[in-house]
Amino acid sequence: MPENGAITKAAPAASGGAAAQETKRQRTRMIIRAVGMLPVLLLLCIGFHVLSDGRFFTGQNIGIVVQQSAVNTVLAAGMTFVILTGGIDLSVGSILAASAMAGLIVSKFPDLGPLWLPAAVLTGAVFGILNGALIALLRLPPFIVTLGSLTAVRGAARLLGADTTVFNPSIPYAFIGNGAVTLIPGVVSIPWLWVIALLVILVSWLVLKRTVLGVHIYAVGGNESAARLAGIKVWAVLIFVYAVSGLLAGLGGAMQAARLYAANGLQLGQSYELDAITAVILGGTSFVGGIGSIWGTLVGALIIAVLSNGLILIGVSDVWQYVIKGLVIIGAVALDRYRLQGSART
């Protein structure tokens, strides 16, 4: 960025001031990026609260919002890993369905019942690793690979249940789908789904910001060629991020299964990938990779949930909800472009 060079060199006498100003500007930019859409989320909440005559900020409604955002938050967390490397995972909705099916089928075996949860998560991880292997080892474009697995895994999900809905009213660990952790009896309780989602966000944050692997993920997304020359095993990083995305889609499938006591290979998780991608982009993660944070993703997922919930509360018809949500996706990408202009990348 020659302009910056020119600026910092231009006035050596005042370079301390210029440098300080530069840091200040960078810090402001970072704060804007970090806070990102949080003000938008708050405005939406307040707006819906007013428009719905005070029905938004009720304990029950907030419970519904967080419960509805939980699965998407988990998917979006995985998607954040993928998009940070400059990739995309279109297959998470299908993987979620296949994992839920696998989980429910295992749960019906009398002896294996409790193993349904690891089975679901593992199913997701296996599909994710397959995605990652195709992308990292065969060097195929992520969009194409996951577009293929979007269709193929959907088919697999239907095959698993012989294209029927599988029920298990006595599925073990059903509490994670419908139970809540009581913090103050009768006053504050948090749905288990939401607890899981927050834990996923927390662990993701630790991995991204506090581990070597995390820095490598940002590096691969920022400049893949440079990462390779710097000695980073780019293939391993790529397989990891798609494995995480698959694994979390599997967890999302388990959460859905526990909530519904049932799974259907055809309908479950349809177009969930779009909500997950939207949440990530709304959260300020750059579509070209290298820039973004998991907290932003959490905010993004909440915005989507608030939007769905609020539009229903104020009585917007189903059709218009689609239109509005679609416009939000486009607006999010426009924001992404705008944000990139301010970054060091040229």
């Binding site: 820095v215 940002y218 920022g222 400049n223 060629s225 020359l229 290298g290």
Partner: peptide, 21 residues
């Protein structure tokens, strides 16, 4: 720029990248 640095990452990360592990 194309093969060396990570322009969006801090100098700190750029300098330490190869020895993080």
């Amino acid at each position: 720029k194309a093969l060396g640095l990570f322009l969006d990452m801090s100098c700190l990360d750029n300098i330490n990248l190869a020895v993080l592990g």
